[in-house]
């Protein structure tokens, strides 16, 4: 019984640890590093041109994930590949921390599907 509990608690610790794969960056540093992004994504992270995504308030870890994908080609986009090339892992964490911290116009689909309201 005791050993079962030990195993279980190890499992719980591991499960918790694995959700923290992507570290949180520094939003203030991110703001300085993100100046290039503002031209398309807006200084407030709400792109005016509808072909570019709003980043304000998007999940931190999602932005990090996507920046890595553009960088290594899993997402194939000429503009973003060029922008990403110069970003280190730390830069990506910081830029993502900045944009995710901004006031958002985004939401999940909760409450927005047929039958919800």
């Amino acid at each position: 019984m005791k050993s079962a509990l030990t195993v279980l608690s190890f499992g719980a610790v591991l499960a918790f640890a694995s959700t923290q794969v992507l570290a949180r960056g520094n939003a203030e540093n991110g703001k300085k590093k993100a100046t290039t992004c503002f031209a398309c994504h807006g200084a407030d992270g709400n792109a005016v041109d509808p072909q570019y995504p709003r980043l304000a308030g998007q999940y931190d870890a999602y932005i990090q994930q996507v920046l890595h994908e553009y960088k290594d080609g899993r997402r194939n986009n000429a503009i973003m590949k060029g922008m990403d090339a110069a970003l280190s892992d730390q830069d990506i964490e910081d830029v993502a921390a900045y944009f995710s911290s901004l006031p958002t116009k985004l939401d999940t689909l909760q409450g927005h599907i047929e039958g919800d309201k």
Partner: peptide, 16 residues
């Protein structure tokens, strides 16, 4: 896998 949150898409820009 890999673990990262599924993006918020309500309110995202149309052409994007």
């Amino acid at each position: 896998y890999p673990q990262y949150p599924v993006p918020k898409i309500a309110g995202q820009n149309e052409q994007y």
